[in-house]
Simulated scan of single mutants.
Amino acid sequence: MCLGIPGELVELPGDGTDVAKVEVGGVRRAVNVGLLDGERLVLGDWVLVHVGFAMSKIDEAEAAATLELLRGLGAAYDDELDALRGSDIDPGRN
């Protein structure tokens, strides 16, 4: 199952790329925010992350409600976090 998971922006692109850092369930990962072109993004904003891309900006209340629901899925949520831990699109890493 592939889920969209809320992530909190902890680092914004500053190097001419569309790559930002989000934190999801204690895991920090680089995600592409290029699909949110035109959105004003600031640290602390929440985005819905799917397969390495921020798909939409969401508010904190929606993020909290979604995370609560996802945690209730148990194994599916844990599997998604494991997949997130194993992925990295950080252009600075080889």
Rank of each mutant, 00 (worst) to 15 (best):
W46L: 01
A54L: 04
P91E: 12
V47F: 02
V10H: 11
G14L: 05
D90A: 08
L84I: 13
E68G: 14
D88P: 00
S56E: 15
G16A: 07
C2H: 14
H50E: 15
V22G: 01
M55L: 15
L35D: 09
V22F: 04
G16V: 06
L35P: 00
I5E: 00
L12R: 05
A61Q: 11
R85I: 06
R85A: 08
E60R: 13
G4Q: 09
N32E: 07
A30M: 06
L36M: 10
N94Q: 09
G4P: 00
T66H: 05
R85Y: 07
A63Q: 03
N32I: 02
I5F: 02
A76F: 07
A64Q: 13
L70H: 04
D45E: 08
G72N: 12
V42I: 08
G44P: 02
G44E: 06
V47I: 12
A83M: 10
A61N: 09
E68D: 13
A20G: 02
E8Y: 03
A63P: 00
K21W: 10
D79E: 12
L12F: 04
D18W: 11
A76E: 14
G92C: 06
T17L: 05
A63M: 04
G14S: 12
I58V: 10
I58G: 00
V49M: 03
P91N: 12
G16M: 09
E60N: 04
G14Y: 11
L73W: 14
R71S: 08
I5C: 02
G7N: 06
R29L: 13
L43R: 12
L67E: 14
V31P: 00
G25L: 04
M1E: 10
L73P: 01
F53Y: 13
K57S: 01
N32P: 01
V49D: 01
L73G: 03
L73C: 07
G7T: 03
E8R: 15
R93T: 09
E11I: 02
G72L: 10
G14A: 10
L3V: 07
V10T: 15
E8L: 07
L9Y: 03
G86T: 05
A30R: 02
F53V: 12
E11F: 05
E60G: 05
W46Y: 15
L84V: 05
C2A: 13
R93E: 13
A63N: 03
M1P: 04
D88L: 07
S87W: 13
A54Q: 04
D18T: 15
D59K: 07
G16K: 10
E80A: 14
E23C: 08
G44W: 02
G4N: 05
E68N: 11
V10Q: 12
D88W: 09
I58N: 00
G38Y: 10
F53M: 12
C2R: 14
I89N: 09
G74P: 01
P13G: 09
G34W: 09
D79A: 14
A76W: 05
F53A: 12
G74K: 08
A63F: 02
N32G: 03
E80P: 01
V33S: 00
P13E: 06
V49C: 08
A65G: 03
G74I: 07
R85K: 15
V51E: 14
G86I: 04
A83W: 12
